[in-house]
Design a protein around this nucleic acid. Structure first.
Lengths: 133, 133
DNA sequence: CTGGATCCTCCTAGATACTG
DNA sequence: CAGTATCTAGGAGGATCCAG
């Protein structure tokens, strides 16, 4: 019942890690990176380590749940490290790994693009909305 | 219905375009860009114009609904243009605008990062999962 | 201070079927 | 060919309370 010939299947296998292929691990990774909180967290940490409370203050509007969830997944993926200092009260620092830094540049570039071109986008939207009345 | 006073709205307008601020337009724009399909569509179009069916074939796993939805929002935002040729059958071409091209470089960089560092991420995950048994 | 655990409510992705 | 219409399950994510 596969609608694919053997040749086609071989073709696909040769594609290595092409994120366009569905179910490809890279596709899944891209899915993770395509997360608003991920961009903001990585971007926030790009200038240096921060504590949990620092992050929740800097990234306005993030709930503790989402912040923790995002941090955990990024820690698991080796993007950042989590350091607990057993003082009273306890202190936790988050810091980008080397891998994380290599990503941070790209994500902050996207964030900066958004900040830079927001005007153009808004103008485009107004034009589009006006023409489709 | 708005839970915001005029004063608060003015306050917000003054915050400039810091994407960390919740409700900031840039934040919203970043949210849009943080979409798996957006990355894939823009990345696919970066090498040149494509027809609807080309895109749906290249971006395996995308449903017609999501593809159309993504294309529409990108068109509205001025990232790409949609050209209808009224032949039989009808032919529709999508092409990145100048604005779109300025974004494409960034997004394909992220996509490429995912393809390049997937191994490291997997190793990190294995390590993490092993240590938290 | 740094979260874990729960509950609950939308939202929306995705599958499917259909049309000009 | 290039979409639109419809439906539903699942999960994202906020709110709340609690704990080490």
């Amino acid at each position: 019942m596969p609608t694919m010939t053997a040749a086609q299947r071989r073709e696909q296998a040769r594609e290595e890690y092409d994120a366009f292929i569905k179910g490809c691990p890279t596709n899944q990774l891209l899915d993770r990176l395509s997360d608003k909180w991920v961009s903001l967290v990585v971007s926030a940490l790009s200038t240096g380590p921060m504590r949990y409370s620092d992050l929740s203050r800097k990234i306005a509007g993030v709930s503790p749940k989402m912040l923790t969830q995002t941090l955990r997944s990024l820690e698991r993926d080796g993007i950042l490290t989590r350091t607990v200092t057993p003082s009273v009260p306890v202190r936790v620092d988050y810091e980008l790994s080397a891998l994380g830094h290599s990503l941070a540049g790209l994500l902050t570039a996207v964030k900066r693009w958004a900040e830079t071109h927001i005007e153009e986008v808004h103008e485009a939207r107004d034009r589009y909305d006006a023409s489709t009345d």
